[in-house]
Each structure stands twice: as C-alpha cells, then as structure tokens.
C-alpha cells in the first residue's frame, strides 16, 4: 500500500515540477501573443495593456504561477487568448482524440510486439528472428516524420483510406455502427504509423529481455530438470522478462505521445498535436501549458499503471513494498 502511496506522491511532485518548468520556459521564450497586435497601428498600446492585464499577464511570474496552480486544482487551466475560450474544455475535446489514437496504438503495439519478440527470441537466429531484427532496424533508422509523410503519400495516391480529420463530412447522417466504422477508417493511417514506429522499438526490447532470461542459469537449471520448451518459456521465462518489458511500457507511452503529436499534424488528426503546435506558434500561453500538462498527465498515468503491474508481476518489488510498511 505504502508503495502505491509513494508512487502517487512522486507523480504529484512530477506534475508540480513540469508545470513550474513550463511557466519558466514560456516566460523565457521570446515574444508574446500580443506582438502582432503591437504592429497593428489601429490598436492602441493602451488596449493591448488592458488586454494583457485582463489575462493577468502583467503580473509577475510567481503570482501568475500561484494563480494558475490554484485554478488548476479546480480543473481550470486558464483561458486561451486565440480561441477566446477556457483552456480545459478545449484541451479535453482534443485530448479525447489523442487518447483514442494512442491507446489504440499502444494496445496493438504490445499485442504485436510481445508475441513477436518472444517468438524471435525463442528461435534465435531463425528466419523470424532475422526478419524481425532487420525490419525493425530499418524502421528505427528512418525518422518518424519521413515514415508518416511517405505513408500518407501512398495512401493518398492509392486512395486506400480517407485522410484528414477523424470522420467524413457526412458522418452525422450515418448510423451508429457506420459512424464507428468511419472513425476507424480515419484512425487507421495515423495509428498504423505509430504502431509501426513503436513496434520496431518495443519488439527489440522484448526480444532482448527474453533472450537474456533464456540464457540465465536458472533457465538452464530448469532445462536440466526436464521442463518442456513451452512450459519453460511461459512459466519460467516470461514472468521474469515481463519486468523490464513493463517498465518499458511507461517509456513506450512517452514515445507514442511525442510520436502522436507529429503524426497527428501530418495526418490531420484532430488531437492535441495540431492544437499544441498552433498554440506554440501563436504563443497562446495557457493553451501551451495546458497541453503540456495533459501530455505529462498521460505519461505519469502510464508509468503509474506500469508500476502497479510490476507489483503484481515481480515478488521482489512486492517484498520491498511490504518492508516499507
């Protein structure tokens, strides 16, 4: 129990740290939302100053941060200047889409990576192993952006899938089932790109950790006692290999998130990615901070889930938890 509490506390501290850094960096970044307005002779400096103070931007950094934290605790992440709307609902409407994309990609990535990695490792040097190693190193060596743009071009040229947005223009008229299908077809391309990039990394890690455990003395010893190959793999190797793999889950979420920001922009998926990009370019302060906080929340949440899974899987960590009582 204590272990979980400690993890939660750590997660909170992390969020505080991230938000503080965000404020600091946005403060240090040159320019502000009102720079363009200043160039416009029709808007008087007084108006701009009034606008600034209405958004609270004339206050010192510490005061702004304190206000923001205070509001954030009540789920209010400030006000977007560009959209002229509260940040939280704005972000949430986009975050839902990002969440849909990343969780789909995450689930499928792991569904592919684990069996493939285990298969490759158990037949080391075999055809599957060599194919997996070769293909994954190819995908890893090509930048995500290039893969995304390349696949997009292919899809557009061959008209395999709809591109841009998350549903067709006429989707309102469709039945529930057809609607779902429509979303899935829009989701397919960005998800595929993410899965491809992420799987190529995860599968290598899974393979490596299974290989390491397969070579361990206790696996050799179990072999010497006549365990069958499949029993050995599933009962003796996988539970041990799961530990590094689960720790990786948290990291893979980070990879997916940063990847999804790029992929969303390229494929026109209406997620956080395009929103944060726009907000950054227009220096829409609170929207940027809110977007980053959302991403941080996802990641910390993912790591937390991974930690919880580790407790279930690894008795050594469970023991540590008991000790701390």
């Amino acid at each position: 129990m204590n272990y979980i509490l400690r993890r939660l506390l750590r997660a909170m501290l992390l969020l505080v740290g991230v938000s503080a850094l965000c404020f600091l960096f946005t403060e240090m970044a040159p320019g502000s939302f009102f720079d363009e307005m200043r160039l416009n002779p029709q808007i008087s400096p007084e108006t701009i100053a009034a606008l600034r103070s209405s958004y609270g931007l004339d206050q010192p950094l510490a005061v702004r941060y304190a206000r923001w934290v205070n509001a954030a605790l009540r789920a209010d992440l400030g006000y977007s200047i560009a959209y002229n709307a509260p940040v939280a609902p704005l972000l949430w409407s986009r975050a839902k889409n990002t969440l849909l994309l990343t969780t789909c990609a995450l689930a499928i990535t792991w569904l592919i990576s684990v069996p493939l990695g285990v298969w490759a490792a158990s037949r080391r040097g075999g055809l599957v192993d060599r194919a997996v190693t070769l293909a994954s190193s190819f995908v890893i060596s090509v930048p995500e952006l290039v893969i995304a743009v390349g696949l997009l071009a292919l899809v557009v040229r061959w008209r395999i899938l709809p591109v841009g947005g998350m549903m067709s223009a006429d989707s309102d008229a469709l039945s529930m089932l057809a609607k779902l299908k429509d979303v899935a077809r829009h989701l397919a391309l960005p998800a595929f790109i993410l899965i491809l990039c992420e799987t190529s990394i995860i599968v290598r890690h899974v393979r490596a950790s299974v290989l390491e455990v397969l070579g361990a003395t206790y696996v050799q010893a179990a072999r010497g006692l006549g365990m069958s190959q499949s029993r050995l793999l599933f009962r003796h190797v996988l539970p041990v290999a799961a530990n590094p793999a689960i720790s990786l889950l948290g990291f893979s979420l980070a990879g997916l998130l940063s990847g999804s920001l790029i992929v969303e922009v390229v494929c026109g998926w209406p997620g956080l990615g395009p929103l944060i990009l726009e907000a950054t370019l227009s220096r829409d302060l609170y929207l940027v901070i809110g977007g980053i906080m959302f991403s941080a929340l996802f990641m910390i949440g993912g790591n937390f889930v991974a930690d919880m899974m580790l407790i279930v899987v690894d008795p050594r960590i469970r023991k540590e938890g008991v000790d701390a009582r």
């Binding site: 003395t217 050799q220 365990m227 009962r235 008795p315």
Partner: peptide, 28 residues
C-alpha cells in the same frame, strides 16, 4: 537430475520455492 553449482543463480527469482519444486513434478 542436475544439482547446479550456484544456488543464487539456479533458482528462478519470481517463482516461490514450493512451486519451483512442484514444476519438476508437474513436468514428469
């Protein structure tokens, strides 16, 4: 049956002692 050299390395760290022995029975 083999009795290995280093007991610190020859037992699977995530399986309890009872199950480790039981696994051999189960296999045969």
């Amino acid at each position: 049956a083999l009795i290995p050299q280093d007991p610190a390395l020859s037992l699977n760290p995530v399986i309890t002692a009872g199950v480790l022995i039981g696994e051999v029975l189960r296999a045969h």
